[in-house]
Design a protein around this nucleic acid. Structure first.
Lengths: 231, 231
DNA sequence: CCCATACTATGACTTAAGTCTCATCCTCTC
DNA sequence: GAGAGGATGAGACTTAAGTCATAGTATGGG
């Protein structure tokens, strides 16, 4: 048992050191976190946790992609975040101790580490730099949420879609958004339905702002795309 | 100078002790916070800070109401929070060190205390319980934002309005929402325009869920109002 | 008491978004 | 290379939301 988990834990230390907010924490903190982290794996489409259930801890993604979303009573899904390796999720519930505000689903096979809330709290009180790192981390998450709120309240579908395309393109440091994004997925991310996304895309293409290269979207005019995304 | 500020500072300590997240911090922490807090006053409609400006610190309201909002390029305002005495604002920017994500305006004459980011950070690293209190505070703020996002993405105007009425009524522990809320204000809070709010209210009234008593809104059927607010 | 002002009511109309439906087109497997 | 299944394109239609215009109604100050 110990022999099996030992290599995992060292991998975790490495992972933790590579994460922005745990970088600069020093080996003691990393080791302490690694000591209480629980490894978990999920297969594609597995539910990691449901909304409105008590939070168990903070999750850290080692491998794979996790979707944080919520489904309306009419069955429409809204994707709030897509979390990839090296990032955390369920910060909110793990840190305020309330219920999970959304559902987490494995988009791919996923390996995560879970740090129980109580351990996190204990370590935060023991290592002040860790506490501050958590503060900055959750503050950044809140900032992202503010952006979402403003997008939904002040932008129309075209604007939100333009914003999504820009941020996806930025993620790849390229003007080519890979078509991992189906229209269905884009719809869930901007809070609308597939057909409307299709229309908005054709619209942007008619305006010469983007074009389709087979089934990839190519950004022709980043400036006008950014203008379309302005609040 | 010292004589003038002394009573203010003691008032601040009292205020700080009364705030949920600073309660249980012990007098040393409260005194330390009070020592670096800067008092500021604003008259009605004064801008406390603008969005996209560098954050100066965390604000704590002693008296009055502060509006946190953003205006679209077409001139539509969206109110994200209304902050009243005993609560903090600009947590996000103060804690992550980025730009202010929204504009803060004094809705009434306002007295606030500002705790500079660097002082906050120093004290947080010195007093671990303070750091954890900040973590929980910003996590709660993030939770509120998640609620806003989900409301905007998954509820229609009627649903968001129902939600607003319920939370306003709850704030007063009563089923009577005082008409401090104009339709214009409700519109800004649910992210729409005045006429649409008016229609939605008449709609709820036709359905027997609310009624108008002069210019107050009376909730007749909290259950059906809650059903209308469901995501 | 009257008027100015701010808020509300309401209808007519436009536009954006959502729904329904079906054709088409990849791409992967057999 | 045929067919199945997922993804897209697109038209027709419905509905929610937003805009415009205008009239009514509080209400507080002079």
């Amino acid at each position: 048992m110990y022999d099996v988990s030992a290599p995992d834990k060292s991998k975790l230390s490495q992972l933790l050191s590579g994460i922005p907010y745990f970088r600069g924490q020093g080996p003691a903190v990393v080791a302490a976190l690694a000591a209480c982290a629980i490894p978990r794996t999920f297969e594609v489409d597995a539910i990691i946790f449901w909304e409105d259930q008590p939070a168990t801890g903070l999750f850290l993604v080692e491998e794979g992609t996790v979707k944080i979303s919520r489904i309306s009573k009419e069955g429409r899904e809204h994707i709030m975040h897509l979390i990839s390796a090296g990032d955390t999720f369920n910060d909110v519930a793990a840190l305020d101790g309330g219920m999970n505000p959304a559902t987490a689903t494995a988009c791919t096979a996923v390996k995560v580490w879970e740090i129980p809330r109580e351990d996190l709290r204990r370590l935060a009180e023991q290592y002040p730099q860790l506490a501050w790192a958590l503060v900055e981390s959750i503050a950044r998450r809140a900032r992202h949420l503010v952006g979402l709120v403003q997008g939904l309240a002040l932008r129309n579908v075209r604007g939100r879609l333009a914003h999504l395309l820009l941020s996806e393109a930025q993620n790849l440091d390229s003007d080519r958004v890979p078509r991992m994004l189906t229209q269905e997925e884009m719809a869930a991310r901007v809070g609308t339905v597939r057909e409307v996304v299709g229309r908005a895309l054709r619209n942007l293409a008619n305006d010469g702002i983007i074009e389709f290269d087979r089934h990839r979207i190519v950004i022709l005019d980043p400036d006008r795309l950014a203008a379309a995304a302005e609040v």
